[in-house]
Amino acid sequence: MTDRPEPWEPGSGPVAAGKRYAPATERNRDAILGVLRDQLPSSGLVLEVASGSGEHAVHFAVAFPDLDWQPTDPDPAAFASIAAWRAEARLPKLRAPLRLDTTGDWPIAQADAILCINMVHISPWTATVGLLERAGAALPRGGLLYLYGPYLRDGVETAPGNRAFDASLKARDPHWGLRRLEDVIVAAEAEGLAFDRLVEMPANNLSLLFRRRD
């Protein structure tokens, strides 16, 4: 017997009470933290879109105690897990989760930074377009939009593992799949989000940093 929470991934099934865990979170959270340390504001509100199990929200809220952290997700199973992790952590600036669908009206109108980890490839392209559109409206001048996950890149060979992952995503849902980095940049620029930099991450993932223009 073990007290370890049940695994979770988007669309994994019915709501289960209590915490869930996403195995990828344990592998990537410290690498992501290393990028965020020099990029997030010293104070203000960070909106996390598609918070998943809620483990990232707790990890980052501990690392950045001066920031208000707002987790969100549209998935009921994820929402329940976020709430359970938050209740256990008892962190003063980790807010209760909100339901947020990137293509609908957002419950948060403004944020000092926005994070979205491992959503772009596990959702329809319209979800990414909605994220970029609303992030462009919500962020202040110079505000950060941070995206993390695997991408396709023109002129860069796709790793075999990412090709297989892309095929498995499309088998689950034909509207899912790895996106071209260049398509994301063009869509972001159209919403006033300037591509700042790319950071190579472990396991063939990328950190993409955008900043709100004037």
Rank of each mutant, 00 (worst) to 15 (best):
L178V: 07
F60T: 00
D166R: 01
K93C: 02
Q110M: 08
V184S: 07
A190S: 14
V35S: 04
D154H: 14
D101K: 05
R86A: 12
D214Y: 10
G18N: 08
H56Y: 06
E191W: 12
K170F: 06
A167G: 02
L147C: 00
D73T: 06
S81F: 05
A111W: 07
A22W: 09
R163V: 05
S81W: 06
D3S: 15
L98W: 05
P107D: 05
E48Q: 05
D75I: 03
R213D: 13
A159R: 02
L208Q: 08
R29E: 09
E88L: 13
A87P: 09
R99F: 07
M119P: 00
R95C: 12
R20K: 15
L144G: 13
P74T: 01
S43F: 06
E9V: 12
E157K: 09
G192A: 10
D73C: 03
W106K: 10
P97C: 03
N205L: 02
A138S: 15
R153F: 14
W176Q: 03
L33C: 01
L40F: 10
L132W: 03
S51H: 04
K93S: 07
R37Q: 13
A61P: 01
V35Y: 05
R212F: 11
A111F: 04
G34F: 01
E48K: 03
A167F: 01
V156L: 09
P76Q: 11
Y148V: 01
I82A: 01
A16T: 15
R29F: 08
R211F: 10
L132F: 08
D105T: 15
A16W: 14
H59S: 09
L36K: 07
K19E: 15
E6G: 04
I114F: 06
S207T: 06
I32R: 04
G13I: 01
P160I: 09
E191V: 12
R95F: 00
G13A: 02
P74W: 07
W69R: 07
R27D: 09
V184Y: 08
E133I: 00
K93L: 14
G34R: 11
L91D: 04
D3V: 12
A80M: 08
V199R: 10
L198W: 04
V58H: 04
I122L: 03
H56T: 08
A31D: 14
P7S: 11
D75S: 05
R95M: 12
P5D: 04
G11S: 10
R134D: 04
P71N: 03
A203F: 03
L193T: 07
N28F: 05
A188S: 07
L208P: 06
L144F: 14
H59C: 03
R211D: 09
D38Q: 15
L198M: 12
L144S: 14
P7A: 10
R180W: 15
D166N: 09
L36F: 03
T126Q: 12
R180E: 11
L115T: 12
L67P: 05
S42C: 09
S12C: 13
